[in-house]
Structures are given as structure tokens and as C-alpha cells.
């Protein structure tokens, strides 16, 4: 009976990843001039049990706690680290696939391998079983997130629409000074976007940006409109009003800058965070305004 063969994602990753993906780059290397008596402090303060020995940036040996214990046991007088280090160092090249590396861990039984460049044999990192596990976990987390996003994209309503160009337009009317209904457009848009099967994180960014823009129209804009254009790869939101306009856009963009009267502040708005919030939520934003005529805010978010 043939055993069922299933390749796990970890097994795949072992073939895909190379040493450079998982190695620790800020390797603690000990200069060859160091004395044996100084070694203990370096190992202790860095919480390591061994380290590569370098001459400049060139790897010339490796020393471990065991070498230090041997030196103590022999009761020798202080000497250069180069006399006690292992010279025949087993190293890894930066571009080796992880699958080779795992074989080497098995074969030699070492706890760590210095990583060097093929040309010049410069020391560029260190690899332990711990860094491999960390590297694999990180990669698995990223892969999962990518797969989730892909799932949202491929389940999107747009997958079933056949056309050369697709866009869907939505329009919301905003009534000035109507605080009971304020936020209704952002709410409606958020609910609508759920049917498009867009990732919740993106929906939330669209909703927050639209809500802030909507509140601006309610408070300052003398009423206006929010126009939304949904395309397969982006959502564009335009907030238009015919209100008082913004005299100094640069100033208005500054977090905390506000011209809101106190009754607006009492409602929990007018803290001067609206435009700054919008900027944080969207991928692109452009704001134009003419005093006495109105404001035009265009935002887009990539899906």
C-alpha cells in the first residue's frame, strides 16, 4: 500500500528559502587579537555560547564555550584566542538553500554555522537552529496573510463580471448640519463593500476616510456629495461641497489644527485630526479648495 505523500508548506519552504532569508545578520564576531581571559565576558554579556573569530571581516576560526572550559582545565597562562580556536570551520554560503543546511546540522552536530560570501569569504551572518525556526515561522505568517488576501481578491464580485473596463459608481448626498444622519454614507458604503468581498482591513480604511470626509461636509461644507467609484483594483472616493472652503490647506492638514467652533467640539469632533486621519487611511489623496466656493477632496485606496 503506497503511503500517501503530502508535502507540507514547511517542507516546501525548506527548498525555497536560502541561508540569507533566515540568518542573523548582526553577528557577534570576536577579533583575533582578543585574549582568552577576555572571552568569558564577551560570551556572557551577549548571552552566546560561541562566536566566530575574524581578522578584519574575514572569517579565520570559531570558538565555543567548550574551548574556553578546556583552556581553564588545562590551567594554561593567558594566550591569544587564535591559539585555542578551531581553524577548520564549517561554514555556509549565503546563497545555499535551507535544505542543504539542515543536512549539515545533522552531519556535523554543531550548534551554529558562520555564513560567508562565496567571493572574498567575508563573514556576513550566523545561523543557528533557532534562527531557522524563527525564519520559517515568519515566512509562514507572511504566506498565510498573502493567501488570505488572495482569497478575498479571487472571491471578489469582479471575478464574475466580464467586460473590458469595470467600474461601479455610488452617490451619497450629505445634508449640512444634520448630525442625526451624519455618518450614514460611510455606514452605507461600508455595508455595500462587504458584498464585494473586499478584505475587511481595506473596507475599514475606506469607511474611516469616508466618515471623516462626510463629517467635514456636515460641519463646514454646507452640504455636498460623496461619489464613490469602485474598480477591481481600487476604490476612489470624491467628497465635494459648496461650503466656506479652506484658506490654508497646508495648515489644515496639520494634525491638531482646527477651526471648529466649540459646539462641534462638544460633539466629539473638530479635534483637527480629520484630514490627518484621512491621509493615514488612503493610498493617495488630493485636496483643492477655493474660499467661498467649496472643497474637492479626492481619495483612492488600492484593493
Amino acid at each position: 500500500m503506497a503511503e500517501e505523500k503530502r508535502v507540507t508548506r514547511v517542507q516546501e519552504l525548506i527548498y525555497e528559502l536560502t541561508v540569507s532569508d533566515v540568518m542573523k545578520e548582526d553577528v557577534i564576531a570576536i577579533p583575533v587579537q582578543t585574549k582568552m581571559s577576555e572571552l568569558r565576558e564577551t560570551l556572557r554579556s551577549n548571552h552566546i555560547s560561541g562566536a566566530p573569530i575574524v581578522d578584519g571581516d574575514k572569517l579565520i576560526g570559531i570558538i565555543s564555550l567548550q574551548d574556553f572550559i578546556d583552556w581553564l582545565a588545562e590551567g594554561q597562562s593567558d594566550c591569544s584566542i587564535s591559539e585555542m580556536m578551531t581553524v577548520d570551520v564549517k561554514t555556509l554560503y549565503i546563497d545555499e538553500p535551507l535544505v542543504n543546511v539542515i543536512d549539515k546540522f545533522d552531519k556535523y552536530g554543531f550548534g551554529r554555522f558562520p555564513v560567508i560570501t562565496r567571493r572574498g569569504e567575508r563573514l556576513v551572518g550566523i545561523l543557528t537552529k533557532g534562527t531557522i525556526v524563527e525564519g520559517l515561522l515568519e515566512k509562514l505568517a507572511i504566506t498565510r496573510r498573502e493567501e488570505e488576501e488572495l482569497r478575498y481578491r479571487t472571491n471578489s464580485i469582479f471575478e464574475n463580471i466580464i467586460a473590458d473596463k469595470i467600474n461601479m459608481n455610488l452617490q451619497y448626498t450629505i445634508v449640512a448640519q444634520d448630525f442625526q444622519r451624519a455618518g450614514g454614507s460611510a455606514s452605507g458604503l461600508k455595508k455595500t463593500l462587504k458584498y464585494f468581498n473586499i478584505h475587511p482591513r481595506i473596507v475599514r480604511r475606506v469607511a474611516v476616510a469616508t466618515y471623516e470626509a462626510e463629517m467635514n461636509i456636515v460641519i463646514y461644507g454646507n452640504g455636498g456629495e460623496i461619489l464613490v467609484k469602485i474598480e477591481p483594483h481600487q476604490i476612489e472616493i470624491v467628497a465635494l461641497d459648496s461650503g466656506q472652503g479652506i484658506p490654508d490647506i497646508e495648515k489644515a492638514m496639520q494634525p491638531g489644527y482646527s477651526t471648529a467652533p466649540s459646539w462641534i467640539r462638544e460633539m466629539g469632533f473638530g479635534a483637527g485630526m480629520g484630514l490627518a486621519n484621512i491621509k493615514k487611511c488612503v493610498d493617495e489623496m488630493s485636496l483643492t479648495s477655493t474660499v467661498g466656493e467649496g472643497t474637492h477632496l479626492k481619495m483612492s485606496i488600492n484593493i
Binding site: G183, A186, R204, M267
Partner: peptide
């Protein structure tokens, strides 16, 4: 929050 007007519910809704 100490804010009790409907906008706190709107805020809750849009930001999950």
C-alpha cells in the same frame, strides 16, 4: 467615552 450622541455609534461602526 463620555460622549453619548449617535456619532459615537457611527464611529464604532466604521472602525469595527
Amino acid at each position: 467615552t463620555g460622549l453619548v450622541n449617535p456619532q459615537c455609534v457611527r464611529t464604532a461602526e466604521v472602525s469595527d
